[in-house]
Design a binder for these strands. Structure first.
Lengths: 230, 230
DNA sequence: TTCTGACCAAATTGTTGTATTTAGTCAGAG
DNA sequence: CTCTGACTAAATACAACAATTTGGTCAGAA
């Protein structure tokens, strides 16, 4: 059990690197197997198809993204402030090209998967969703004058733009990432933050939300496996 | 001269509608001519190639976008406030599908043009550029704590996200446009606006900037024409 | 049990030749 | 002088077929 899961990790790491570079369609099962140091058949012992492997990969990467976010959040004393919540989620997203591709429906990297499958269960969770926005409004960490649906939508817009801008403005010409993140943080803090200073509540809310999410992706990860009997 | 310019307008209107609907590649010169009520040959009396027509069209639409923006700005007593500047430019951009396509490098609508040509002269002007941001900082309408390059970049991010989000979230599920624009305005006003209440200065600065831009696109419009001898 | 190499059917890609469309020209009508 | 319809060369779309790749299976090696 432990063995198979560590080897599963190796495979998904390999798949991730290849797919980010060559795209899903141009990446073959053979390629993935070779890079992971095993045979193609071994992959089929774990997942019954290439699509299943992709499902698993997305859940895996989503977990990585959440973990990354989590680490940044914990390390930040003011992590519960909306400004830092936004900052950390943007930086975490930026660090995960596969999730970024999912978020932008990049069909070059993700193939037809993005159009055929329902990906909202991934994309709805990046940055703040409607319910968590409402929660943070209730806790006084976000202003209440704007409907949570609208506020969450604006968060999505910013995340969207943050990822997409890189295809327009060459990274060499763009300002340093940290500075941009600071500016967006500043914008959020002064534009959307509530009056409450008690950011621990926000940190706590986000933390428990993420625990729930991680469990969900764990389940998805095992559901994708062949050993999972439906 | 006057005749030819009004007919040029008819052609570009026709071209715009067709290209937005079918895309540049699938729109033929014949289609455009028929819709404009003239023969294909007549188009070639004005522009020497389909690409030249597209260049003219983009300049034309850019002028329309600026005019639209201008009208909104003039009608708004607080048009010089950054919040409203952002609001009006977003709404104007949203109302111009061709410019939006250019901004998102949508190759379905714009064909290979977007990749081959340099389109920065269009995209750099939507929302606030670096120099105008700096000007508005100097006038006290924007905060000075953030470098103008970074601030302008954040403006681009928001515009980018605003346009791109529509390809992810179906318009039916999205909050009302006006409400979103309000929220973004609010965000900008409290996050980036300076202390100066004297928004007339901002309005003036933007106004003159746009006059300059319009002249530039006018020139581009005539440069694209056959009658322009180089 | 755990994994692999050989294997197959299906999909993808490459090719060649033909049919159609379309950007661009031009002599001449109005 | 303004415009058009007929024309052409080039690009594109299509069809049929061969060559190759690749997702997925399975008997058997380790």
């Amino acid at each position: 059990m432990k063995d198979s899961s560590v080897q599963m990790g190796r495979v998904l790491e390999a798949a991730s690197a290849l797919i980010v570079h060559y795209g899903f369609d141009k990446t073959t099962m053979e390629d993935i197997a070779r890079k992971a140091g095993m045979s193609k058949s071994a992959l089929y012992l774990i997942w019954s198809s290439k699509d299943r492997l992709l499902s698993a990969l997305l859940a895996y990467e989503m977990k990585r993204l959440l973990a990354d976010f989590s680490v940044r959040l914990e390390a930040d004393p003011d992590g519960g402030q909306i400004a830092n919540l936004v900052r950390h989620s943007l930086l975490a997203l930026k660090n995960n090209p596969l999730m970024a591709a999912l978020y932008t429906r990049d069909s070059r990297t993700l193939g037809d998967f993005v159009s055929h499958q329902d990906v909202s269960r991934y994309t709805s969770r990046i940055m703040l969703g409607v319910t968590s926005t409402a929660q943070m409004q209730a806790a006084g960490l976000l202003q209440s004058g704007i409907r949570p649906e609208v506020m969450a939508y604006v968060f999505s817009i910013v995340a969207m733009g943050f990822i997409h801008i890189q295809s327009i403005v060459p990274t060499a010409e763009a300002p340093p990432l940290e500075e941009v993140a600071d500016a967006i943080s500043h914008l959020m803090q002064h534009g959307f933050a509530g009056s409450s200073e008690h950011s621990a509540a926000g940190k706590q809310a986000i933390s428990s939300l993420m625990d729930h999410a991680v469990r969900q992706y764990d389940e998805e990860l095992s559901k994708a496996r062949r050993s999972y009997e439906q």
